[in-house]
Amino acid sequence: MELFFTSLLNGVTYGLLLFMLSSGLTLIFSMMGVLNFAHASFYMLGAYFGYVISSYVGFYPALLLAPLAVGAIGALIERYGMRRAHASGHLAELLFTFGLAFLIEEVVHLVWGKSPVPYRVPPSLDGPLFTLFSATFPTYKAFMMAVSVGMLAALYALLTRTRVGLLVQAALSKPDMVEALGHNVPRLFMLVFGGGVGLAALAGVIGGNAFVTEPGMAAAVGSIVFVVVVVGGLGSITGAFVASLAIGILQTFAVAVDYKLPFFDRVTVSQTAPVLPYLIMVLMLIARPRGLMGTRET
């Protein structure tokens, strides 16, 4: 019983973390139709910027400044790189982000070295919040959960309730029409890309000190964010949210199970836990390529 509730709590926490990581990716995909392979790299840049900025002005200002700075970099990359790649097709665009991820990791190596940096949780958020059975629940995790839910609310409102959101959605299907109505579509896309990158960076500022800020952190989350977005349905914010929670809870419970798999002498369910999301993704893509709540196929 104890393990059940702890696992449920851990699962929800992990799920919300996954959503935080992938929301920016969903935003960019749903608005621009671009799968951004460099997403995790911007998450990493966010963590490093958060580390540097917070060492000068403290954690809370960094929470705002780092995403803005990384978002601005993202917007510039869209303006001077992506747009050019876009002209030579979808594949070129995707490969551009692929190469970008490679380059960003090198730059991080160069600037901050190859070892982890000592980026710490601020004292005001450090320490336990409450105790469940014998385990404590850290305040910082609760903070992460709150930010994640906040992201969901903000994105949902932005996409469905604001003029900008509607404009961008319209621009995705009928860019010429929107352009003809006097809107600057390229600039709109630049802002969306910057925004999505900023969200990744925000996740980085928060995740960097909860976990470890090091050059390998991008590769560590690189593919799991795609799983979340694909399973949730490419372009659906709510879908991504549901998928994150489902994957988080499923994976956490799988860890708790020591049942040995049939036919494999040595392997337990718990050992396979981190592979499960990929299995789910493949099955989902075969059975229902739209994902849980996607509105269209990719």
Binding site: N10, Y14, A220, Q251, V255, A256, S270, Q271, A273
Partner: peptide
Amino acid sequence: LHPLARVKDFAPYIAK
């Protein structure tokens, strides 16, 4: 046994 360099959150293992 947990997969090499793939676990982001060790909380479930700690719970166990």
